[in-house]
């Protein structure tokens, strides 16, 4: 039997076999092994907690540089990390389409387990459902996560002021382009690797060196331009980005040109944008560069007193333009 059947989600023997042989084997930890209705655990001297949830529906489920399993761990770890938290525990809910290859499921579970281990988080509770063919696309994953916030200063847009600098830990648009190129119907052979990665260690490295980080966010869906707009919108300051300083892989740039897409609007899964005072910005870049995931870190922009609420891009030819929120589904624009 190499396919997932509806019975695998019925709660009967097949469900138990699946959980025992595929999932527990890979996520094994004492809290999960109880298989109780809820995970029960202690947080010593917890103080402030961060709690987040996210669902993953990427198509295709495997792309260069990652897959939906790795993504579902990194995404939740990163949401906790940009809130200033140290991620500890995550949950994992699988919604599987009937007929999914068991080998593919096993690969995805494997990849979740590996990423969780590498990131030092435990998967301590979960659920598995199987739906009829056509009612889901291969597999959807929901993960929730809990972490402890140890950073003293609040991470809040309220603290951002004109003159602050904007720092990123590396190249943009790699994830979105990697996924697009993996879609067979577009007919491209890719060379673009997703940046999908857990960022909490890199972020902690910076937080240790910089006591005044004002805000952090991971520019996922909608890309860097959309994230910057979320920050500036309705605020008494504007944001100016310098296009030539924004790191971009040559292969990603080429693919963007080919597909008629603007890399500023393409999603990332291993990037964090930080806003901090000018005098800490250099230190933040240096701290990032000391970490494997931040070698190409740079200051890419600044907070301005003009253009309140807006994001301005100084283009690579020296012109200025406004970068708005992403307003449409980013279809490959051949037109």
């Amino acid at each position: 039997m190499s396919k997932i059947l509806l019975a695998h989600g019925s709660g009967g023997k097949l469900t138990h076999d699946l959980i025992k042989n595929v999932i527990l084997k890979k996520y094994g930890n004492t809290i999960l092994r109880n298989l109780s209705d809820a995970a029960v655990f202690e947080l010593k001297k917890a103080g402030r907690l961060a709690f987040t949830t996210d669902s993953f529906v990427v198509d295709p489920v495997i792309f260069e540089g990652g897959d939906i399993g790795k993504l579902s761990v990194c995404g939740t770890v990163n949401d906790l990390a940009v809130s200033g938290a140290v991620p500890l525990y995550i949950s994992c809910s699988l919604i599987i389409e009937e007929g999914l290859d068991k080998a593919l499921l096993s690969r995805i579970i494997d990849s979740m387990a590996k990423e969780a281990k590498a990131a030092g988080v435990l998967i301590i509770t979960g659920d598995t459902k199987v739906v009829e063919r056509g009612n889901a696309d291969k597999i959807f994953i929901n993960t929730s996560g809990i972490g402890i916030v140890r950073y003293k200063k609040p991470i809040s847009t309220d603290r951002i002021k004109a003159g602050d600098k904007i720092v990123i830990n590396g190249t943009i648009a790699d994830h979105g382009i990697s996924v697009l190129l993996a879609r067979e119907e577009l007919g491209f052979k890719g060379g673009v690797k997703s940046d999908c990665a857990s960022l909490h260690r890199l972020i902690l490295t910076v937080l240790k060196k910089c006591s005044n980080v004002k805000f952090m966010r991971d520019p996922t869906r909608g890309g860097l331009a959309t994230t910057m707009n979320e920050i500036a919108s309705g605020m008494p300051f504007g944001i100016r980005l310098f296009e030539e300083n924004i790191p971009l892989n040559e292969s990603t740039k080429a693919a963007c040109e080919l597909l008629g897409l603007d890399p500023l609007y393409i999603g990332n899964e291993g990037k964090v944008v930080m806003i901090l005072p000018e005098k800490e910005a250099g230190r933040a870049v240096a701290a990032m560069r000391s970490h494997r995931l931040g070698r190409r870190a740079r200051i890419i922009g600044e907070v301005t007193s003009d253009y309140a609420g807006r994001v301005i891009v100084r283009t690579r030819v020296g012109g200025e333009r406004i970068a708005d929120m992403l307003s449409k589904e980013a279809l490959p624009r051949i037109c």
Binding site: F188, K189, E250, K253
Partner: peptide, 8 residues
């Protein structure tokens, strides 16, 4: 080919 992206 353009950099690493190729197509027929």
């Amino acid at each position: 080919r353009s950099d690493k992206t190729a197509r027929q």
